[in-house]
Computed example of a mutant assay.
Amino acid sequence: MRHFPQIGKIAPNFLTIGVYKKRLGKIRLSDYRGKKYVVLIFYPANFTPVSPTELIAVSDRISEFKKLSTQILAISVDSPFSHLRYLLSSREEGGLENLNYPLISDLTQKITNNYNLLTDDGLAFPGLFIIDKEGIIQYYTVNNLLCGRSINELLRILQSIQYVKENPGQACPVDWKYKDQILYSHPLKSKLYFKDLYSSKKV
């Protein structure tokens, strides 16, 4: 039975090798604490079919994540040298040329195992974690190996998490987007939202 890291708990820390802009260097998750949100993206392995569609889509929208003070880290069980090869491969070849964030190596599978995403075949399930500036897990999802994730939904969730943390006592209703109407987390105050919403729908 798998036990995933819990929402509201400190994300398992790690120190490993990352590759960014053709350079190898050490990356420690806790180094971002107090500075940035982190979106930690696990993907099965380099050159798997779905992974580049997701990783490139995030890279092409990196400015939106930077505006939200968020660092993207993508991680797989490949070696740093495999990552380097992946980053040097053109997009036409299924590679990640000109990626705008680091790829992290988990060759020992320790990190993937700590986040309980290791498959029976030694790959990583496509898991995604949003970690706040205090190093606390605020959100995670785990996908089927062949089902791509939604970048629009990731940004929406990230904005909603940041909003409720910055506005205690408020909550984000279904499909909430930035500047949409909010509701209150207090049950009595939340009735104002439902009154406005459903009274306008009466014929």
Rank of each mutant, 00 (worst) to 15 (best):
M1S: 11
P5Q: 14
I7W: 09
I7D: 07
K9P: 03
N13G: 05
T16A: 06
T16D: 07
I17Q: 09
Y20T: 04
K22N: 14
R28P: 03
R28Q: 15
K36M: 05
V38H: 08
L40I: 09
F42A: 09
Y43M: 04
N46S: 10
F47Q: 03
P52V: 00
P52Q: 05
T53V: 02
L55K: 01
A57V: 02
V58Y: 14
V58D: 00
S59K: 07
E64F: 06
E64D: 13
F65K: 03
K67T: 10
S69H: 10
T70Y: 00
Q71D: 07
I72E: 00
L73P: 01
L73T: 07
D78L: 07
S79W: 00
F81H: 06
L88M: 09
R91E: 13
E92Y: 07
E92G: 12
E93S: 15
L99V: 14
L107S: 13
I111T: 11
N113E: 15
N114G: 13
N114T: 04
L118M: 02
L118E: 00
D120P: 00
D121E: 14
G122T: 02
L123Q: 10
L123S: 10
F125R: 09
F125I: 03
G127H: 12
F129T: 02
F129E: 09
I131N: 09
D132K: 09
K133P: 08
I136K: 15
I136L: 14
Y139T: 05
Y139E: 12
Y140V: 05
Y140M: 14
T141S: 15
T141A: 13
N143D: 08
L145I: 15
L145N: 10
C147E: 15
I151M: 13
E153V: 02
L154E: 03
I157V: 15
I157R: 07
L158C: 02
L158V: 03
L158W: 01
I161F: 02
Q162S: 09
Y163V: 07
K165C: 08
E166M: 08
Q170H: 08
A171G: 14
P173W: 06
P173L: 08
V174C: 05
D175L: 04
K177D: 01
Y178W: 01
K179T: 13
K179S: 14
Q181L: 11
L188Q: 12
K189E: 11
S190M: 08
K191S: 06
L192E: 14
L192P: 01
F194Q: 03
L197E: 04
Y198P: 06
S200Y: 12
K202S: 11
